[in-house]
Write a protein that binds this DNA or RNA. Structure first.
Length: 232
DNA sequence: ATCTCGATAGTCT
DNA sequence: GACTATCGAGATC
């Protein structure tokens, strides 16, 4: 169970590409956290891109103490506290001096569900939502989404806090991202939608997921009715 | 399934 | 002083 192939850590150059491209390329890559408590691994299933010319980006109005890591080296972590309670984990992209990053919004738990559940304060055996229902949603999906289906949740499950701000994600010491196949996902499999909780720049469809993905922070909005085939 | 609402604290105007 | 890249509980359909 613990002996899955972790591949190789993504290199500095991976994060230098345009931020929107990096956000798409990060899908299906592995997020790995190693602490004294143990190692946890997840498969990245939802990302969002934030560029400096984007009103929704923390760096839009220039560098401040909080967003400074976004302007630093590509491939480091940018972690910040949101709503006073939750940490959000980003991978910094683009060259130094440009404030851009990719928010990791959801992962599929792969290794050490037990530790993730412990950190999330969940008892997998007695939690009330831990019941098979009559729908298509499986137990595994529901548990996975409770563990890591959202930026705040996955940060907690992976033991990420402001202590991980600026950690080098290309180094396999504490927190890193790895790719099993360096080529990434074929573009047609990628679905883009509006970013969650963002009102500015709503025309930028920079939330990225894969088709048929079930480990998500929120469902993908239904396709517009006019784009659907009529039902005969 | 979809909604509303409150908690909470750091950041920026 | 007014936000906020969220979460979970509780209400309602």
């Amino acid at each position: 169970m613990e002996d899955i192939d972790l591949g190789l850590p993504l290199e500095y150059e991976f994060y230098l590409k345009p931020t929107v491209e990096v956000a798409q390329n990060l899908l299906n890559c592995l997020l790995i956290s190693e602490t004294e408590e143990g190692r946890v691994v997840g498969r990245i299933s939802e990302t969002e891109a934030y560029t400096q010319d984007d009103p929704a980006c923390h760096a839009f109005r220039g560098k401040t103490q909080r967003n400074a890591p976004m302007f630093e080296s590509a491939g480091i972590a940018y972690v910040y506290l949101c709503y006073g309670v939750h940490y959000c984990f980003n991978a910094v992209t683009n060259h130094e001096g440009i404030g851009e990053a990719v928010l990791i919004r959801a992962v599929e738990p792969l290794v050490n569900w037990e530790l993730m559940a412990k950190r999330r304060g969940i008892d997998p055996n007695t939690a009330p939502w831990n019941k098979r229902d009559s729908g298509s949603t499986t137990l595994r999906t529901r548990l996975g989404n409770h563990l890591c289906g959202g930026p705040g949740k996955l940060a907690q499950a992976f033991g990420i806090s402001n202590k991980q701000n600026r950690v080098d994600l290309t180094s396999t010491t504490e927190l890193w991202i790895a790719s099993v196949q360096h080529t990434g996902i074929p573009k047609p499999q990628i679905v883009s939608s509006t970013r969650i909780g963002i009102s500015a720049a709503s025309e930028r469809l920079w939330r990225f997921t894969l088709q048929n993905e079930c480990f998500l922070s929120k469902p993908i909005p239904p396709t517009k009715a006019c784009e659907l085939e009529p039902i005969s």
